[in-house]
């Protein structure tokens, strides 16, 4: 892990006692259960996600990290067999409320996927996609502005500014992933969900994304699913460990990694299973 140039957690974010003051909760989940048909994938998960910080979800494959993540933008709605019960609130408003507009929700809660999935359109049109759908730009100059600032925030502008009208699929994997981050940023979300955003990338591209995430947390609430414990340690302030559909423990990242309370967490981080 020391080959990476990404910032590790600075001691400033951790209090002397090792406990960080969690910010105002942006998202609160209470007793969330998720079922795929008859099969239950999550059991009574409750957690608070603090605002403008990075929370990572870790745990062995199949433990329900992605399932939980997809509850926050209701992407689980797109799976016909999937059923979610319990309460999830963003800024104290129930996102599973009847009649809630998922289109609006997904504009507030952006998502970045495991495999970079730029649309087979130009770089410009990739970024402009969301703003166009949500009618965010009043004019062409407005849109140009949004595209440029989104690319800048995603740290991609310098690399692509001369080829905005070339296809987004022609970029390298790491660039594609930053394009997808820029695309999500373009609609001005408050929360960004990332499902293993670096698992298809090489170490250098990974380091760049981690750097970016560290930067983005100043303006966005970020939840990242990762299989790399080093990555969780590097980028996140809080970490939640899942096992077999249960949230085993959640807390300040450094505490989880140095002093886990639960035996299962300890086994996982010391590599005894998973």
């Amino acid at each position: 892990m020391n080959t990476h140039t990404a910032p590790t957690m600075s001691s400033a974010t951790i209090g002397a006692a090792g406990e960080m003051l969690a910010g105002r909760p942006k998202i609160t989940a209470k007793n969330v259960n998720v079922y795929y048909g008859e099969k239950q994938a999550l059991f009574d998960v409750s957690v608070n996600i603090p605002e403008k910080s990075v929370t990572s979800f870790i745990g062995p494959s199949g433990c329900g990290k992605s399932t939980f993540l997809r509850c926050f933008n209701r992407m689980n709605d797109t799976i016909p067999t999937c059923r979610v019960t319990g309460d999830i609130e963003i800024d104290n408003a129930d996102i599973y409320e009847r009649g809630l507009d998922v289109v609006q929700l997904r504009a507030r809660v952006g998502m970045v996927f495991q495999k970079p999935n730029p649309f087979p359109k130009s770089i410009y049109d990739n970024i402009a996609y969301g703003p166009r759908i949500h009618g965010l730009a009043r004019s062409k100059t407005d849109l140009d502005q949004i595209v440029e600032s989104s690319l800048k925030k995603a740290g991609l502008f310098e690399e692509v500014k001369d080829r905005l009208h070339e296809s987004g699929t022609g970029l390298s994997g790491g660039q594609q992933q930053r394009l997808c981050i820029a695309r999500a940023i373009a609609v001005g979300p408050e929360v960004i969900l990332m499902d293993e955003p670096c698992s298809a990338l090489d170490p250098i591209a990974t380091a760049r994304i981690e750097e970016l995430i560290d930067h983005l947390k100043e303006n966005f609430t970020i939840i990242i699913v990762t299989h790399s414990m080093q990555q969780a340690a590097r980028v996140s302030q809080r970490t939640a460990f899942f096992h077999l559909g249960v949230l085993v423990e959640e807390g300040v990242t450094q505490m989880i990694f140095t002093n886990p309370r639960d035996r299962r967490t300890q086994d996982y981080i010391t590599g005894r299973f998973g």
């Binding site: 933008n73 992407m75 797109t78 998922v102 289109v103 609006q104 929700l105 997904r106 504009a107 952006g110 998502m111 996927f113 495999k115 999935n117 730029p118 649309f119 087979p120 359109k121 996609y129 969301g130 759908i133 949500h134 997808c180 695309r183 999500a184 609609v187």
Partner: peptide
């Protein structure tokens, strides 16, 4: 994953079909 990308941006299924799937 292109459909998911579009839906996650807040596009409706029709918008996804017409603006992402059909052009692709």
């Amino acid at each position: 994953n292109l459909r998911d990308g579009s839906l996650a941006m807040g596009a409706t299924r029709l918008e996804t079909a017409v603006r992402v799937v059909l052009p692709a």
